[in-house]
């Protein structure tokens, strides 16, 4: 894999850091008046999701990480792994629970997600910003309630619990924002 010098650093560049693939979130060049230039860089570790901060002498270089983000279709869960397919190549990929992380809460079969591959192995998945989920359990609401007067917890078909308006009943389909875990309307 190619090496990248500090002058090529930019947001989104994928590099190897301490053995893990990382993505540059912020790259700040600091040149002390009387000193050499440095790059103060914030990274996101693509495996652990943690943020790291490192400072490099300008001129240092790091190995690039072979990371690809592909749109894939979620197929099914066999109890151990979650299976996805690249609709272009029909290649299938299995993700374990660690790689799935919070995405488990929002995956509906046939939905399209972004799967991140490192050296062609899946390391994480990002669900769409909005997904349609079905309410499987919630307290019955009072007739005549309207949106905006508070809410109640509702369990979705994926198992995640979302605050919904009082008028939502079991069996209804609702739109959920996966970034905030918030109710975003009736589907």
């Amino acid at each position: 894999m190619a090496h990248y010098g500090t002058s090529q650093f930019k947001n989104g560049l994928k590099l190897m850091l301490e053995g893990n693939p990382c993505s540059i979130v912020n790259n700040e060049i600091v040149k002390p008046g009387k000193g050499q230039a440095f790059n103060r860089v914030k990274f996101k570790d693509l495996i652990t999701g943690k943020t790291l901060e490192k400072t490099f002498k300008s001129g240092e270089s790091l190995e690039g990480a072979d990371v690809m983000e592909l749109n894939m279709q979620y197929l099914y869960n066999d109890g151990e792994s979650w299976h996805f397919m690249d609709p272009d190549s029909y290649d299938q990929y299995a993700l374990d629970e660690t790689a799935m992380s919070g995405a488990i809460n929002y995956l509906v079969e046939q939905d399209s997600c972004v799967v991140t591959l490192w050296n062609n192995n899946p390391i994480s998945v990002t669900p769409p910003n909005h997904v349609v989920l079905e309410v499987v359990d919630t307290d019955p609401g009072l007739k005549g309630d309207t949106a905006g007067t508070g809410g109640k917890p509702a369990t979705m078909n994926t198992g995640v619990v979302v605050q919904v308006p009082l008028f939502i009943a079991i069996g209804e389909k609702v739109k959920v924002d996966t970034r905030t875990n918030e109710y975003a309307g009736r589907a």
Binding site: L17, E18, V30, P32, G35, Q36, F38, R40, L52, E53, K54, T55, F56, K57, E60
Partner: peptide, 19 residues
Amino acid sequence: GLSDDFHWIEDLQMLLFVH
């Protein structure tokens, strides 16, 4: 996890200051 490739102490002092 920072570079330790320095010949002069002042350059490393500055790296630590910046970081």
